[in-house]
Structures are given as C-alpha cells and as structure tokens.
Design a protein around this nucleic acid. Structure first.
Lengths: 207, 207
DNA sequence: CAGTTCACGATTGTTAACAATCTATGTCAA
DNA sequence: TTGACATAGATTGTTAACAATCGTGAACTG
C-alpha cells in the first residue's frame, strides 16, 4: 500500500518468520491470502513474489475502477441520508494534515485510502471489499509505472469530489472522479519499469 | 453454487479429508480461501460453517450488483468490438438445452453463471472476479430466502439482455438487466429461512 | 427437579521433523 | 572458454504428532 516493497521482491518464508516473529504456519496462511487477492504470486516450489502487473493488467484495473467508481460517487451524491459522510470529511482533514507536514509515505497511503473510504461510506461490505482490492492493486501499478513526483493524487481533487457529494451534485461528482482517475492513469509511463529490490529492508527499517 | 449445501452446514476437517481423500493441510488451505471469499465462516476453535447471509447482507449484495451490472452491460452494448460475444451466445444455448431437459440443478448453476459470463465477456480479470464473488453469494441468498419455484431466473430474460447487447442498445440492455435483478430480489421472502442441514450428504451423493 | 460444576471426548490450532523440489556452485569435457 | 552435468545447499511442501480449546454429558448439590 505504501510502495515500500517493489514488485518481484521475493518474500521468503524463513525471512518473514524472523521479521515478524511468528511460525511458518502463520506466514504461509498470510501468503496464501495475499496471493488470493493478487497482491503476491505464489510459484510452486519457488516461493512468493510481490506481484508485478503488466501493462495489460494495469489497463484492466483502471477500466474496472472507471466502471465502478462513477456510479459509486453518483450514488453517494444522490443519497446523502444513509451514507457515512463524516468518514470522508475526517479523511480529507487527515490528508491535508499529512500534506502540510510533507509526510510522503503517509500522503501516498491516504491518497489510495480516500477511494477505499468512498466505498466504505456506502456502508456496503461488498463494495468496500472490491474497492479495497482495486486500490491496493493500483498502488502496485503506480509504484511500477509512476514517475516519482506524481505518486500521490493531485492536491485538491479529493476535496473537490467530496464537495460535489456534499452539495448533492451527482453529475459533477461523477465527472470530477472520472477526470481524477484519468489524471492518475495519464501520469503513468507504461514503458519504464522500476527494477525489483531483492530484500525486506523496507519492512525491517520500519520496526 | 448449486445450492446443495445449506447455509450453516458444518464442514468438519476430518470429514472433508476422507470425502476428498486429501490431507488436513489441503483442506485447511481450501477452507481459508473459501472463508476469504465469504463463502464460509471460520470460527476460531469451532470450525468452518457455510455462510448464512442475513437480510442486511442480502440487500448489500443486490445493491452492489445493481451498482456494477448496469454500467457493465451498458459497456458491453456500446463496445461490441473487443468483447467476447460468443461466450454469451454459447451460454444461452446451454441454458436453453438445460431448460428443455428440465435439469434443475444445471439450470440453477447456469442461471448464476450467465451473470458471471457477462463480466467475463469484458475480458477484464478484475471485473470477472468481482462478479463471480457476487454471483456466488447470490446463490447462497437465493437458497436461503428463495421460494422453490423461482430458484432460477425467469426463462427468457437472459436471452433478451443478450439481444439488447447484440443490437447495440445500451439503454435497453441496462433497463432489462435492472428489472431482471429486481425480479430475482422481489422473488425472495426475507422472513422465511431454510433450516440448516448438518452433514455433507449432498457432496458424497454426487461422487 | 433444576441448576451448576467437573471431566471427558472431539475438534481445531500449532509445532517440528521429514520429503521433495529447485538453485547455485564447481567440475569435467569438448 | 563454454557448455553440460552432477552434487550440495537452501527453500518449499507435506505429514504426523502434540497442545489447546470447546462442547457435551454425567455427577453432584441446593
């Protein structure tokens, strides 16, 4: 989620065991779940590797998001009664704070999380899970294909989307979101790839 | 998927081991994956049970489907170039055949699968996975709350949706699909619950 | 007779040893 | 020098024994 582990990084069981201080069973369970979400790839007898989406997969992820998120925000803007607006308002506050403090990894994490919280605001478990999966995958893609400067979303687009929702303007909310997704996607360079890093220093460093 | 295992059925590890002739490890891996998809619930130290969606979850599933499927079929009807229409045409043929032979479980399976194949026709892996999960969950819900006669979708609604897609009529396709989902949902009786069955006779019987 | 407690059996969770597979290194030959 | 082959090490996959937890039923008490 925070792009500290590059795609194709090998995740050896023994290494994860000592890093997190748990037995192999826990590690293998976690790896299986991550692989079922497509975050890592399990290669038989070869181990687990951070997933490395290709160009085509990247396009699929954005196509899926452009299918789901527009009706999602439209619904949020229409039906402001049953939805959890506070969740979004509080989140924007967090984003602003992180941006002022220039906490880079925090900004990246919150940028993705905003979209997850759009889904969470519907109070619909299934929509939430779908968006979380798509957002996670987007993080991988941005880490792979993104130029370093635009790793996070443009500053105030999230805030503007929220305002459109609050003012019950479905068409505007939908349009703002579409162009927001467009900005993210067009900020990617589909040809250049980051090279894989080969250890877990990123995780160890954060303890 | 075929509603042979009622919700709340207990799935004991030992039982599954002998039924499928595999070790506990394989069984536990499978149970973990099923639980991550919400098809079963893993209760700590108590075992695995077929998920038993409640009224609120059922509404969430239909809300999620009504959010995703309309733009999905609209896209299919608009952009008939890159999509896999043959998949849908062949499927409708299978449905017709099963209906003529009055193969009940086959009809139920294919009824759900049509919606999965709508997603598959986009050739987008993520859309496909999301729909598969929602359709599976719908099967559980229909098994729980559905009256026995309308367990499958009305006869020709799938066929009509496909025709609207083939004739590039997005608005019609979207409208047909919405009323189709409405039909399924309104055929449910949210109060009456089927009682759980307590063993795996259904699986054993099919071997 | 009802309610509580204890102990037993059954089931799940964990651990550790073992087996199988793959990668890498080093040797030999062309 | 390069290629293939074989062997050793490391890593993953599996199995089986062990520990922990939970539900049940019997025994006991009020």
């Amino acid at each position: 989620m925070e792009q500290r582990l590059a795609p194709n990084t090998k995740l050896s069981e023994a290494r994860l065991c000592e890093t997190f201080g748990v037995g192999r069973m826990r590690v293998r369970r976690a790896l299986l779940l991550l692989s079922s979400q497509g975050i890592i790839k399990l290669q038989s007898n070869r181990g687990a590797y951070v997933a490395c989406p290709d160009k085509s997969e990247a396009n699929d992820v954005f196509a899926a998001r452009m299918l789901i998120e527009p009706p999602l925000v439209r619904q949020l803007a229409q039906n402001s009664g049953d939805i959890d607006l506070k969740l979004l308002i509080d989140h924007i506050a967090l984003e602003d704070a992180a941006r002022q403090k220039k906490e880079r990894t925090e900004i990246i994490r919150l940028s993705g999380e905003f979209h997850t919280k759009l889904a969470q605001a519907t109070r619909n478990k299934f929509i939430f899970r779908m968006m979380r999966e798509l957002v996670t995958r987007t993080s991988l893609i941005v880490g792979l294909f993104g130029s370093s400067e635009n790793a996070s979303c443009p500053d105030d687009e999230h805030s503007n989307i929220l305002k459109a929702i609050q003012s019950h303007n479905p068409a505007l909310a939908e349009q703002l979101l579409m162009s927001h997704l467009d900005h993210i996607q067009s900020g990617l360079d589909m040809e250049a790839r980051q090279e894989p890093q080969d250890d877990l220093a990123a995780i160890l460093g954060s303890d």
